[in-house]
Design a protein around this nucleic acid. Structure first.
Length: 390
DNA sequence: GTAGGGTTAG
C-alpha cells in the first residue's frame, strides 16, 4: 500500500487527479490488508472532495466489514447508500446475507433474502451458499440438507460449491457417511467434484481416524487428474502431526517442495506444531526463519503454537486467552482483556516481570510485539495465549 | 481498460 500511495503522489505531481476507480482500488487494497479504518477514511475524503461513491466502492467496504463481523457498521453504510439513492444490487444483498449468516443471525439473513426476492432480484449460488453455510455453522445440518434438496427439487442448477458447503457441514459434524453419500449424489447428477470436495472428504476421513483410506483417496484423485494443493497437504500433514508421526509430516512437507506447491502460513504453523510436540524447539525456530525468508508473515496462530510449545518445555502454563485491548507505552506491555481469568486485565510482554534476559520467551514476547506493531495500529481482536509460571 | 460477492486446512 505504501508503494500505491507513492504512485498516487506521482500522479498528483504530474497534474493527474485520482478518479472514482483509483480511489476504489486504494480502498480495496487497504481493506484486503485488514485496514478497513483507512478505507473508511478515504471514503470520507472522497465525499469531502465531492465524489459520488459507486455501488462498487460501497461493496468493497461492506464485504470487508461483514467479513470482520462488524455488521452494524455495515448497516450504517447501507443507510448512507440509501440516502444518496443507491439501491442494493444482487452483490450487496449477497454480502449482507453472508454477513448475517456469519454472525449466526439466520433469521435476519432470511429477511434480507426475502426482501431481495420481493424486489425481483433472484438469489444466485452465492446467496444460497451463504444461507447453506450459515445453517451448517449453526449446527442445523439437517435443516441445510432440506434447503439443498429443495433447490434440487425445484430444478435449480446446484453447482459444486453448494454441494461442497453441505459436504463440509457433514464432515464437521463427524458424519463422513452422509458426506460420501452426497458426494456420490453430486457425481450421479453430473456435477463434477473439485479439489475442495476432496479436501473436505479427506478432512473427514482423517477425523474418523482412517489415514490409510486417505492415502488411497489421494492416489485416486491424482489418477483422475486432480492436483492436491496446499490445503490438501495441510489436512494430511496435520493428521500425521496429531498421530505424532513427524517423519511422515516432514516427508509431505518436502514433497510439496518437489511438486512446487507453495506452502503458506498454515502449512508452516502445522510443521511448527509438529516439531514443538516432539520438543524440537530449535528446529521450529529454524522453520520460522525459513518462513520469513520466503516472505511469509507469521500470524497469531503461528505465535500461539510456538508460545504453547515453549510453555510446555519451560514448565509454564498458558494462563488463558485474551483479547488485546490496548498498549501501555510507559510500561511497555500490552493490556489484555482475558476471557478466562477473574481479572479483566492481564499482561504479556512485560520485559522484566515474567520474562528474563536471554530467556526464549522474552524473545518471543519481543517478536509478538513487533508483529502486532505491523498491524497498522489496530491490535484489538487479536487473540493471544497468556503465559504464567507454573 | 482499471474497482465488488460464495465452499476446504493450522
Amino acid at each position: 500500500m505504501d508503494e500505491a500511495w507513492k504512485v498516487v503522489r506521482r500522479m498528483l505531481l504530474n497534474g493527474l487527479c485520482p478518479d472514482l476507480v483509483t480511489y476504489t482500488i486504494l480502498i480495496s487494497g487497504h481493506c484486503q490488508s485488514g485496514n478497513i479504518e483507512e478505507g473508511l477514511k478515504i471514503r470520507k475524503e472522497m465525499i469531502s472532495r465531492g465524489f459520488q461513491l459507486s455501488i462498487i466502492t460501497y461493496s468493497v467496504l461492506l464485504s470487508s466489514l461483514c467479513k470482520r463481523g462488524e455488521v452494524s457498521k455495515a448497516e450504517q453504510l447501507l443507510d448512507e447508500m440509501g440516502a444518496i439513492g443507491l439501491d442494493p444490487d444482487l452483490i450487496v444483498y449477497c454480502i449482507l446475507i453472508h454477513g448475517y449468516c456469519k454472525k449466526g443471525e439466520i433469521e435476519r439473513a432470511v429477511r434480507v433474502y426475502t426482501s431481495m426476492c420481493s424486489k425481483k432480484i433472484m438469489p444466485n449460488s452465492y446467496a444460497h451458499g451463504a444461507i447453506l453455510s450459515g445453517l451448517c455453522k449453526k449446527g442445523m445440518v439437517s435443516h441445510a440438507r432440506r434447503y439443498l434438496d429443495n433447490l434440487i427439487e425445484n430444478g435449480l442448477v446446484v453447482d459444486i460449491v453448494l454441494y461442497n458447503i453441505m459436504i463440509d457441514g457433514y464432515v464437521k459434524m463427524g458424519d463422513i457417511y452422509e458426506a460420501i453419500g452426497l458426494y456420490d449424489q453430486a457425481t450421479r447428477a453430473g456435477v463434477a467434484p473439485s479439489i475442495i470436495t476432496y479436501n473436505s472428504l479427506i478432512y473427514g476421513l482423517c477425523k474418523s481416524g482412517g489415514l490409510n483410506n486417505v492415502k488411497t483417496l489421494l492416489r485416486t484423485l491424482e489418477l483422475h487428474g486432480f492436483v492436491p494443493n496446499a490445503v490438501t497437504y495441510a489436512i494430511v500433514m496435520d493428521a500425521y502431526c496429531r498421530e505424532r508421526n513427524i517423519d511422515a509430516m516432514i516427508e509431505l512437507f518436502n514433497e510439496m517442495d518437489a511438486k512446487a506447491i507453495t506452502p503458506n502460513v498454515i502449512t508452516y504453523s502445522i510443521v511448527i506444531k509438529g516439531l514443538c510436540k516432539q520438543g524440537m524447539l530449535q528446529k521450529s525456530l529454524n522453520i520460522l526463519k525459513d518462513m520469513y525468508t520466503k516472505g511469509l508473515v507469521a500470524d497469531q496462530i503461528t505465535y500461539n503454537t510456538l508460545i504453547h510449545g515453549f510453555c510446555v518445555e519451560r514448565n509454564m502454563q498458558p494462563a488463558g486467552r485474551g483479547e488485546i485491548t490496548g498498549y501501555s507505552h510507559g510500561e511497555g506491555y500490552w493490556i489484555v482483556k482475558s476471557c478466562l481469568q477473574h481479572s479483566n486485565k492481564g499482561t504479556i510482554c512485560k520485559e522484566d516481570d515474567c520474562l528474563r534476559d536471554n530467556d526464549m520467551l522474552w524473545r518471543w514476547a519481543r517478536m509478538i510485539t513487533e508483529w502486532i506493531n505491523t498491524l497498522a495500529g489496530r491490535p484489538s481482536g487479536i487473540w493471544i495465549t497468556l503465559c504464567a509460571l507454573r
